[in-house]
Nucleic acid binder design. Structure first.
Lengths: 115, 115
DNA sequence: ATAGTTGTACGATGGTTGTCGAAAGAGAGG
DNA sequence: CCTCTCTTTCGACAACCATCGTACAACTAT
C-alpha cells in the first residue's frame, strides 16, 4: 500500500455487473442483515453504529462486510465514521424490482411471524 | 406408527401461513437448490431422480428437505417414486410476486455470470 | 422369492458462519 | 500529549451446512 495508508482494508465493492444473485440472497437470509437493509431503505445513508441491532460491534462489522461483498451496500469513510448506503441503483439495474419485492415480502413476513 | 407404515419419515410441510421469508431466501441461496426450483417452474411435477443436478442421491435428499421445510416445494409419494412440485400458489399467496422476481433475476444472473 | 429401482437414514468430514472479547488503528477534542 | 469515540482486526468457539459412502427400506418386475 503506497501512500495514504488505508484505515484498515481497502473497502472493496464489487462492480454492479458482478453482483451475484445467490450472494445477495444469502446476504439477505439473516435477520440482523435484513434489519440493516430495511433500516437503510428508509434513509439514504447512515453511520455504522446507529443501526437498531443488538449485536457486538465486531459482529456488526462482519455483517457489513458480507453485505458489502455481496454488492448490497456501499460504504465510504468520513473521518472517524463509516457511512453505509444501499446500492439501490446498482441492484435495481441488475435485478429490476428484486429488492423491493424481497423487502415488501419481509414486511408481510414480519406481520405474521415473530420479529 | 399405527398403520400404513410410512416409507420413512412423515414428509411434513409447513402451512402456507407459516412460511418464513428468511428460510425461503436461505433455501434459494444455493446453486443446486436454485437449479431444482428453476427446473420445477417449467413442469408441474417431477420425480426426484430426474433433476439435472450433479450430486449424490443422499445430497439431493438433503436439498429436498431444506426446500420442503422452507415451504418452497411439496412432495408426495406414489409407489416407489416421490413427486416434487413447487408450492406456487402458497408462495405467491404469502409473498406475491416474490418467486417470479427471484427466478427472473436468476435468469439475468445466469446470462452474465457463470453457470 | 429374487433381483432391480428409487429414494432415505445415518455417520463422518471438511468448510462456512454468527457470535463474542480483547486489542488496536484512526480521527476529534481537550 | 492524552483521552474519548468509532470501527476494525484477530483469534477463538460452537453451530451449522453441503457433501459423500454405506446401509437399508419400500416398491416393482421378473
Amino acid at each position: 500500500m503506497p501512500r495514504s495508508q488505508r484505515r484498515r482494508s481497502a473497502l472493496t465493492h464489487p462492480d454492479a455487473a458482478e453482483i451475484d444473485l445467490l450472494d445477495v440472497l444469502h446476504a439477505l437470509a439473516d435477520p440482523t442483515r435484513m434489519t440493516i437493509v430495511r433500516t437503510l431503505r428508509a434513509e439514504p445513508e447512515r453511520a455504522c453504529g446507529t443501526f437498531p441491532v443488538d449485536v457486538a460491534p465486531s459482529t456488526l462489522t462482519h455483517h457489513f462486510r458480507v453485505l458489502r461483498e455481496a454488492g448490497v451496500i456501499h460504504q465510504r469513510e468520513d473521518g472517524n465514521r463509516r457511512w453505509t448506503a444501499l446500492r439501490l441503483a446498482d441492484l435495481d439495474g441488475r435485478f429490476p424490482g428484486l429488492l423491493d419485492s424481497i423487502l415488501d415480502a419481509y414486511e408481510t413476513n414480519a406481520g405474521a411471524v415473530a420479529s
